[in-house]
């Protein structure tokens, strides 16, 4: 059965809704708990992982390290999503799971005023400050997603459905999501499972090669992996061989192809498209 990915600008209510949907449907809830496991397995701090997901890029943040942490999360999350009947929340899955027909992506939005109210209550801060904080959060979300995945996560076209808590009660939102997932459209099939498997494999390969090749881009198709790396002409052959070898050792990889991109600007233009 399908996979549901929830993203929300009202973090607290978003999480609640995702959790309740999982409860109603009897699906597994995949949330930030995953980070603890990743932290343990990969010997990184859980806080760093959470920060990579939450904090907009600052002047001093090291982008490559952040991207690496995000890749860890991405690979782990995709692996979890391969088993159906999951509701994922808070792992940025809506940004890296795209084009998979049995994944229902839901965006929950709330009125800025209400978000400010909640922030004021939970954080015990004056309403005026909470309003500004809420506003900053939206900008931060946008900047974060654009920096990390070259996508604007506040863009509704990323989602199958956008629910506004300004007009819907939480109960109703849960009900709507549960109804929606019943549509045959979101049933998994051989093709969509393959798509998700390809993504998971690509994420694993990318993760494995990232330390050595920070700019690597990976696509996978049924065990065939295509890696795009940047290289100067003189190192090209050596690097290609390296990628081929490193990737070839990974489970599930049957064939590796390496494309070298020498045009840095073209690459920049492409990745921002």
């Amino acid at each position: 059965m399908p996979v549901i990915i929830v993203s929300a600008d009202d973090f607290q209510q978003g999480r609640e809704i995702a959790h309740r949907v999982a409860g109603v449907l009897g699906y597994r809830f995949l949330g930030r708990d995953l980070l603890a496991r990743v932290a343990q397995e990969k010997q990184v701090s859980q806080q760093d992982l959470a920060r990579a997901l939450d904090e907009p890029p600052g002047l001093l943040s090291r982008r490559s390290r952040r991207q690496r942490l995000l890749s860890e999360i991405e690979a782990a999350c995709l692996e979890q999503l391969l088993e159906d009947n999951v509701v994922a929340y808070g792992l940025a899955a809506h940004l890296y799971v795209r084009g998979v027909s049995h994944v229902l992506k839901v965006r929950i939005i709330n009125e800025p005023e209400q978000r400010a109210n909640i922030l004021a209550q939970t954080g015990n801060i004056p309403l005026e400050r909470a309003r500004k904080l809420a506003q900053r959060q939206t900008g931060g979300e946008r900047r974060w997603s654009q920096d990390a995945y070259q996508l604007d996560q506040t863009d509704p076209s990323l989602y199958d459905m956008v629910l506004s808590l300004g007009t819907l009660e939480q109960d109703k939102a849960v009900e709507i999501i549960c109804d929606m997932v019943g549509y045959r459209k979101f049933q998994p099939m051989t093709y969509s499972r393959k798509c998700l498997r390809d993504k998971a494999l690509a994420a694993q390969v990318r993760l494995a090669l990232m330390e050595r090749f920070p700019d690597i881009r990976v696509e996978a198709n049924d065990g065939t992996v295509v890696a795009y790396i940047q290289s100067l002409k003189k190192d090209q052959r050596k690097k290609q061989e390296q990628v081929r070898q490193m990737a070839g050792e990974l489970p599930g990889v049957r064939h590796v192809e390496v494309h070298v991109i020498r045009d840095y600007f073209g690459q920049a233009a492409q990745s921002s498209r």
Binding site: G99, V100, S101, R184, F186, T190, Y191, S192, K194
Partner: peptide, 23 residues
């Protein structure tokens, strides 16, 4: 010509499964 939109359309119309060529 597998694409997400086509896959969803097929499922919506009652397909049992959808396989992309080559298989």
């Amino acid at each position: 010509y597998a694409m997400m939109s086509l896959a969803r359309e097929a499922m919506e119309k009652g397909a049992f499964d959808f396989i992309a060529k080559p298989f």
